[in-house]
Write a protein that binds this DNA or RNA. Structure first.
Lengths: 132, 132
DNA sequence: TAGTTAAACGCAATATTTTTGCGTTATACG
DNA sequence: CGTATAACGCAAAAATATTGCGTTTAACTA
């Protein structure tokens, strides 16, 4: 609050009340510590395109419920276009990804095709969503 | 520290020292507030595959430097395979993305091709990297 | 334009939390 | 088995967040 108050030229108490309002309004979802993936031994980022065997509502629900249980999967998006889901996965290395691929991803319900693309390097990454 | 200490069954001071160690070691990069993209008016997530006109080092550097300046781009990965870079972009809506596409992405140095894939829905999203 | 109302502000007191010093305990290594 | 190093908990001190309250600002109405 003090650091923030100096940045925005407001008193700490005013900042505090504004922040509380944002929390109550659900604009601020959570407070977290961002970690260095490499130093945690997760140097490999892979984007996985997944096609399902069908589009039945029940199938999508089952898939979404199951994929959420895999801790290696950081993001899951339902997509338009060539495939159904895009996953962002973090692995220790390529061999570790092979394990994730076989033991977790390929076994997800309804999966017809998996297309994996490896990141050679993450140029940058932020959680800061523009406000304007 | 107090909340954490209860979770891990340690005293607050012990937690504090461990956290400090993680900070110094660079395992913890930063502390941030995670925001609700929808409530900030950024409901649209788009993944953009970019192919450059060449692979010269100098071209890649220029591209990476420029793309980092676009606040709508939250992530940029150098990729193997069919294209060179994968971007994660957040837009207000599809029309807003059209603007970003024309005014920012298409004008990046060295861009040969842009292939955009829209997320219909973000099933889930986390910053929690597995520690095992 | 002046009056009224609601929202936001700063200050200062209070409450809570973090941070540090220190003696003790546990763990690892020779 | 002894010694050395690292980690622990407790309690005091320092820093920070939180709340109450009176004042100011801004917006809306007559």
């Amino acid at each position: 609050m003090q650091a923030l108050s100096e940045i925005v030229h407001l008193s700490p108490s005013a900042c505090h009340r504004r922040i509380q309002r944002l929390e109550k309004a659900g604009v601020i979802r959570d407070y977290v510590a961002l970690t260095n993936a490499r130093r945690l031994g997760r140097s490999t980022t892979v984007f996985v395109e997944i096609s399902l065997s069908g589009q039945a509502d029940e199938l999508l629900d089952r898939f979404e419920k199951e994929v959420a249980l895999i801790p290696d999967v950081l993001e899951c998006h339902l997509m338009t276009g060539r495939y159904d889901y895009l996953l962002k996965v973090v692995a220790k290395d390529t061999e570790d990804f092979a394990r994730i691929h076989r033991q977790s991803l390929a076994r997800l319900p309804g999966v017809a095709q998996l297309q994996s693309s490896f990141a050679l390097k993450t140029v940058f990454k932020t959680t800061a969503i523009p406000v304007d």
